[in-house]
Design a binder for these strands. Structure first.
Lengths: 150, 150
DNA sequence: TGAGGTTGGTCAGTCAGGTTGACCGTCGCT
DNA sequence: AGCGACGGTCAACCTGACTGACCAACCTCA
């Protein structure tokens, strides 16, 4: 009994990863349609979390996006090299720098937010409110269960 | 209006990725507890899909795990180098090889399946049946919507 | 029976999205 | 003035893949 691998659906973890990748692909596709073909899903972490006017410190960005500052630095480096953001010295703290959107970056951030919003709205419609809310709650619960016991 | 990045919850794609990572970490932790500290989450793709007795071809494994044969090969290479599987020639087709579990691999596969099962059961309990089912359905819908229009 | 397309496996190169560890300089408190 | 905490950076590595090219064996059918 139960000798062979005849799983109708893959394991949950795999399904989560695939879902992530599906949405990530939709994001790059959406951004490419809007004229930004050099943006990767990871860039959204900055665009969704940076303060549009004042800019935001790297570590604060990392905290908001729930990743390490080193990880965030890679993303910011990349965006800077593409002209979407620049690093300005923080007048209040000479250790710190503030990541600010350039004009190009402000447009991209707007498109990114709209694209993300569009994807989530589309997903909500496809799933129905009930399942969408349950999905959100479930993911919240999974992440906070063992993820970061803050 | 809506000037700053004051998102209460991260975007859905990010949440999916984090959930995946949470469960993946639980898997490696569970396997380590059971004495397998050299197994990565990706290895589960083989253990969950290989036929325990007869073994399974690489391309078939890849198909079941929904990845490319090249990707699957990396995983199988790794498992082979650790002594969990071996490649045997397929008597029916001299192009093909069959990936078979070694005795060590059979034990590991059992533990992997049990660990995955335990994690999913624990998740189901934590979420409640309703949300768990909704989660599964939602992920299914997301993946099949744009993922692989078969 | 042999030409041509399909399939199984492999090699090489690349990518995304991070991680940990070490280090340096500045901040701020005592 | 001393010292730990914090902000940023560099380097190395990891996971989980992907695409493209290639070869040999297989299958079909004219």
């Amino acid at each position: 009994m139960s000798e062979d691998a005849c799983v109708s659906e893959p394991d949950l973890s795999r399904q989560l990863l695939e879902s992530h990748r599906t949405l990530a692909s939709e994001l790059v596709a959406g951004l490419a349609e809007r004229g930004y073909d050099d943006l990767r899903p990871g860039h959204a972490a900055v665009f969704l979390h940076v303060d549009r006017r004042s800019g935001t410190r790297l570590t604060e960005l990392a905290r908001r996006a729930r990743m390490t500052k080193q990880g965030m630095m890679l993303v910011v480096d990349d965006l800077e090299s593409r002209g979407y953001v620049r690093r300005a010295p923080d007048p209040d703290d000479s250790r710190a720098k503030v990541v600010k959107l350039t004009a190009h970056g402000r447009r991209a951030a707007g498109e990114t937010r709209r694209t993300v919003q569009a994807i989530e709205t589309r997903t909500r419609r496809a799933l129905g409110d009930r399942r969408y809310e349950a999905l959100r709650e479930a993911l919240d619960a999974i992440v906070s269960s063992t993820g970061h016991p803050t």
